[in-house]
């Protein structure tokens, strides 16, 4: 069986899905380049630069989830999406809480 034996609908499907990956890698590369360029150019002071690259990273994570991990708002992905959002909440509580506590403690040790 060669590739050309695929039904018309599947050929169509392969094309859309390949485009999906191409769009994904395009955005991922663009955001990566932007983040590295921003820091390499050294135009912004440290704090705004850090906020900017954090936002770029967040955008890139969304791109990866959307285009590589195929998480979207369709019904068939609801369970996965709920799981990811709940994880995001737990990760936020744990990471933010840890940072808050440790920096607060550090501030009191000076």
């Amino acid at each position: 069986m060669s590739e050309n034996d695929l039904p018309e609908s599947e050929l169509e499907g392969r094309k859309t899905e390949r485009r999906h990956y191409v769009v994904g890698i395009f955005w991922a590369l663009l955001l990566t380049l932007a983040a590295f360029a921003l820091v390499a150019a050294d135009t912004l002071p440290p704090n705004p630069a850090r906020i900017a690259v954090s936002i770029l990273a967040l955008m890139q994570i969304v791109v990866h989830f959307r285009y590589f991990l195929h998480i979207d708002l369709k019904q068939s992905h609801r369970d996965d999406l709920h799981l990811i959002l709940f994880t995001a909440l737990i990760v936020f509580l744990m990471a933010a809480g840890t940072l808050w506590i440790l920096f607060n403690l550090h501030g009191r040790m000076l």
Binding site: M1, S2, E3, D5, L6, E10, L11, G13, R14, E17, R18, Y21, G24, I25, F68
Partner: peptide, 12 residues
């Protein structure tokens, strides 16, 4: 990703 497509669509 290309491997995933090959897995799904290509018989080769």
């Amino acid at each position: 990703g290309m491997a995933s497509l090959a897995l799904k669509y290509s018989a080769k």
